[in-house]
Design a protein around this nucleic acid. Structure first.
Ligand code: ZN
Length: 647
DNA sequence: CGCTTTTGACCCGCGC
DNA sequence: GCGCGGGTCAAAAGCG
């Protein structure tokens, strides 16, 4: 190996070895990167040695070009052969790896989702999540009052007399039915032979072929076998009856609103094996009486104490209001009427406002009809609460935000997701919070994996609230590697955000200086990034991001004029997702809703509500605006022109 | 003039 | 306590 510039770091090697799944993105220029090829060789090697799963993504490339190194890949290989005359076996190893990878089944941007990236990414994420097989659902950051409700549901389930127990959870919108159902699911699923949490049944089944999709998903979740292709609902019904009637399963049907949905998914108890449990979540109590459930759980509002606690946890990260905020908090809590959804959102919103801000906002809300606000919040919340945002982001983030200039460049996204809880996962099935911390995938300078997190792992929700929450610095660190033109000496990584440079330093052992930036889009935004050329390859910029933006991606406020949409044309190169992370929120359908949510902005409503929503989105640090931003950006480029899906 | 960028001073934690 | 590396601040310089 002559100039060792493009060595793969030992950390990355280890990350690859430790991965359960590697996702390789074959872009048009993939083959011209020796670095990528070396990485691929390693990945393929691990596939053989450790039986790892390798999933190729054909990003604007043709699988057969990859297999046979034809098309654009041929040209790259001509160069390699020229360059590595002396090391033909290296080149041959590359060819071999490509041949194998090209034969694997993966996703093809052109085939899936009609080439719409946002859809495509969702598909990828959800498939990856399935493959990982971790079904634990994300419950809530602050599960106030969940456990008593969960106990309620479980006792109904165990009390069921029938072979197959069916329990309904009903209650008004925003009350937290789904959250309860998720927690119950988390708590129980491992005791069943198979399990499936079908979220947003209503929403999905409204789409064409939605019920069939749900049936497929049910079969897929429980039988774990490849892909079920069902052509119509009746066929699905038969298939389910036939394949599942001996299985002992746990099924949650979330947000059911029509009888036909139940009929397509579980008409009769005998569909499932002995001991199976079905949970039906619905707003409509009436529906439950029709199917003769064994028990009905009425999800009630939070009481005053719970409300105040939940609100405070979001607003102050403490279980009770800060000094001088007591009365204001009381007002908000009153306004929220015990609805967790509203408490959470308003709490999070206020957490970044000063007292004057509170005094402005609260009366304003009081003028908006409660029902309206709630409906709208739900949409935005669903968008933001997706905890799978991390993975999603990691895969998605660099599908956006690169300038056209980079089309011919290459970019490496590397993601390590730490194995957070897999070991003690059992114990904390019920408790969302620690799971959350998979975001702990921080990568510290020279050692990856900064352990972050299990501090709260075994706390029950009561304990949890008592515990003075130490200032957990959720400095989420992520990196992007961007190849630049030779001779380009700037230290600029265009990601669509606005950055103010506040420092530059020369560092040890690296000829390139390091530049320090702070997000300047919102004065209060805490995000920082460092950019420096790679020590062993000066043509690659390494951008290290730290923190979460508390505002949307600037590109969202697409100023009417200039059609400078999102530059999507860039070419991702290779992403390795390391391993078993704990927290794949399985209900990635949520990421659908996030999509819709974003888009639902134009779905006009009263101006106040919209105004509010916009503001809300802009300032609330709810969750990971990075995610929504990236997503929105991804969508805005490709989807706006043809508003076809449901807006 | 009102901004961003540059750049040396400063600050802080860590190992010796 | 000191020196060092890395991170931040802010005065001064640059820029349109
Ligand atoms: Zn920001």
């Amino acid at each position: 190996m002559n100039s060792l510039e493009e060595e793969i770091s030992p950390q990355l090697l280890r990350a690859i070895e430790g991965s359960r799944i590697s996702v390789v993105v074959f872009s048009r220029n993939y083959a011209s990167s020796r670095w990528c090829l070396d990485e691929l060789v390693k990945i393929i090697e691990c596939r053989q040695k450790f039986d790892q799963v390798v999933l190729p993504i054909f990003y604007d490339t043709n699988p057969s070009d990859i297999r046979k190194q034809t098309g654009r890949y041929a040209k790259a290989f001509d160069e390699h052969e020229e360059h590595f005359k002396e090391e033909m076996e290296k080149v041959n190893r590359w060819r071999e790896a490509l041949a194998q990878a090209g034969n694997l089944s993966g996703w093809d941007l052109n085939n899936e989702a009609n080439g719409y990236e946002a859809e495509f990414i969702k598909k990828v994420v959800s498939d990856v999540a399935c493959k990982l097989g971790n079904k634990t659902l994300h419950v809530a950051k602050h599960p106030v009052g969940i456990s008593s409700r969960v106990r309620g549901v479980i006792s109904l389930l165990t009390g069921a007399r029938n072979n197959v127990g069916i329990v309904g959870i009903h209650g008004i919108a925003g009350i937290g039915k789904t959250t309860i159902a998720k927690a119950v699911f988390n708590y129980l699923y491992s005791r069943f032979e198979g399990s499936s949490f079908l979220s947003s049944v209503k929403e999905i089944s409204d789409k064409p072929n939605g019920l069939v999709k749900l049936q497929e998903r049910l079969l897929h979740d429980i039988l774990k076998s490849k892909v079920w292709k069902i052509s119509n609902v009746d066929e699905g019904i038969n298939l389910i009856k036939e394949r599942l009637h001996r299985k002992n399963v746990l099924v949650v049907l979330d947000d059911v609103d029509k009888r036909e949905q139940l009929e397509a998914l579980m008409v009769e108890r005998c569909w499932f094996g002995n001991g199976s449990k079905i949970i039906v979540v619905t707003k409509n109590k009436h529906l439950l009486t029709e199917v003769e459930v064994d028990g009905m759980y009425h999800a009630m509002e939070l009481d005053r104490d719970e409300s105040l606690q939940l609100f405070s946890l979001h607003a102050f990260r403490e279980i009770r209001p800060k000094k001088n905020y007591e009365e204001l908090s009381e007002k908000v809590v009153d306004y929220c009427k015990g609805l967790p959804l509203v408490l959470k959102i308003l709490g999070s919103h206020l957490s970044i406002r000063d007292k004057a801000g509170w005094e402005i906002d609260i009366p304003r809300w009081q003028n908006i009809p409660h029902a309206d606000i709630q409906a709208k919040l739900r949409v935005s919340f669903d968008a933001l609460d997706v905890d799978s945002s991390e993975i999603f982001l990691d895969i998605a983030c660099f599908f956006v935000g690169q300038d056209k200039d980079y089309v011919e460049g290459r970019l490496f996204v590397k993601v390590r997701l730490k194995d957070c809880i897999s070991k003690n996962g059992e114990k904390e099935l019920l408790h969302g919070p620690s799971k959350k911390r998979k975001s702990a995938s921080s990568i510290n300078n020279d050692n990856n994996i900064a352990v972050n997190g299990n501090s709260e792992s075994s706390s029950t929700d009561e304990e949890l609230s008592k515990k003075p929450r130490e200032e957990i610095i959720k400095a989420k660190i992520s990196r992007a590697y961007v190849r630049t033109e030779a001779g380009d000496t700037s230290l600029i990584v265009k990601d669509g955000y606005q950055w103010g440079k506040y420092g530059q330093k020369v560092t040890r052992d690296n000829p390139s200086p390091r530049a320090y930036f702070k997000c300047s889009f919102a004065p209060s935004c805490p995000v920082k990034k460092k950019v420096q050329r790679k020590i062993d390859d000066q043509s690659v910029l390494v951008a290290t991001y730290e923190g979460h933006h508390n505002h949307p991606h600037p590109s969202m406020e697409a100023p009417s004029g200039s059609s400078r949409g999102l530059p999507l044309g860039f070419v991702p190169c290779s992403a390795s997702l390391a391993s078993s992370w704990s927290t794949i929120t399985l209900d990635l359908t949520k990421s659908n809703s996030s999509n819709d949510a974003k888009s639902s902005k134009p779905k006009t409503d009263t101006p106040e509500v919209r105004q509010f929503l916009v503001e809300q989105m802009a300032s609330s640090l709810m969750k990971d605006p990075n995610f929504t931003a990236a997503l929105a950006a991804a969508i805005s480029g490709r989807m706006l022109p043809q508003n076809h899906t449901k807006w």
